[in-house]
């Protein structure tokens, strides 16, 4: 059974159509790349799944139900921006997640902080941009969720940290969970992807298994992406 489903999903911002009649079925136990150029609708799709936006038409279902308080208990979401209260220190932020999410694993989060040499007592606002992103990712991946929605998780960190982050994603998601990663840094995430979705101007251009795609085209996903979206 699909854990994330879109049925004729459409989102318009005034006259601009961000997503146009999208149909998708995403199974659990997969890491799926949501790729496309800026403005193709990646963030819009993820925000609709988290009920931060309201669809103009159609619907999106998480584990068979419309997004709401119930689905948020099983979805771990990493937005594409700083979203944590800057006045709290890192440890207080972890405690906040522990308070509100039953599936949050405090020990796992503390271990990851230690591995990255992040001081738990430091105020969030005192951290560098890259470290903030690492803390946000640690918090997101320390949950035992059914669905992980990661919006540009590696965009702001240095290449060395990207490897750690990708290893964190692979090493920490629950076995039967869906991980949806939105990114335009395809070469970095390609090794971990089971499937890829290409979005273009609000349409699903392609949804395919990454091995099958490489075999069919004789190209890496990254090279094929450059071919499809050549300006």
């Amino acid at each position: 059974m699909a854990v994330l489903e879109c049925r004729h999903l459409t989102k318009r911002y005034g006259k601009l159509t961000a997503l146009d009649n999208i149909d998708l079925l995403l199974e659990p136990g997969r890491i799926i790349g949501l790729v496309g150029p800026n403005g193709s609708g990646k963030t819009t799709l993820i925000k609709l799944a988290q009920h931060l936006l309201t669809p103009t038409d159609g619907e999106i279902l998480i584990d068979g139900i419309r997004p709401g308080a119930q689905t948020k208990a099983i979805v771990s979401y990493l937005p594409d921006r700083d979203f944590l209260p800057a006045w709290m220190d890192v440890e207080s932020l972890l405690r906040f997640y522990e308070d509100f999410y039953e599936d949050f694993d405090m020990n796992k989060a503390m271990q990851m902080l230690q591995a990255l040499n992040i001081e738990p007592r430091r105020p969030f606002k005192a951290l560098s941009k890259g470290t903030k992103e690492k803390v946000q990712l640690i918090m997101t991946m320390s949950r035992g969720a059914k669905v992980y929605l990661l919006d540009e998780p590696i965009a702001g960190v240095d290449p060395a940290a990207r490897d750690y982050i990708l290893r964190t994603i692979i090493g920490n998601y629950s076995e039967n969970a869906l991980v949806l990663i939105s990114t335009h840094l395809i070469a970095d995430v390609e090794p971990v992807l089971d499937e890829v979705i290409f979005l273009k101007q609000g349409h699903v251009e392609l949804h395919e298994n990454t091995d099958a795609l490489r075999e069919r085209t004789g190209m890496s996903v990254d090279n094929y992406f450059r071919e499809v979206y050549r300006c």
Binding site: Q50, L52, A69, K72, V75, Y77, R81, F83, P85
Partner: peptide
Amino acid sequence: RNLLGNEGYLMFSLPAG
């Protein structure tokens, strides 16, 4: 700010009505 600014991404992601 807490509901409709950037922190809204946190607050509206909590399993709360």
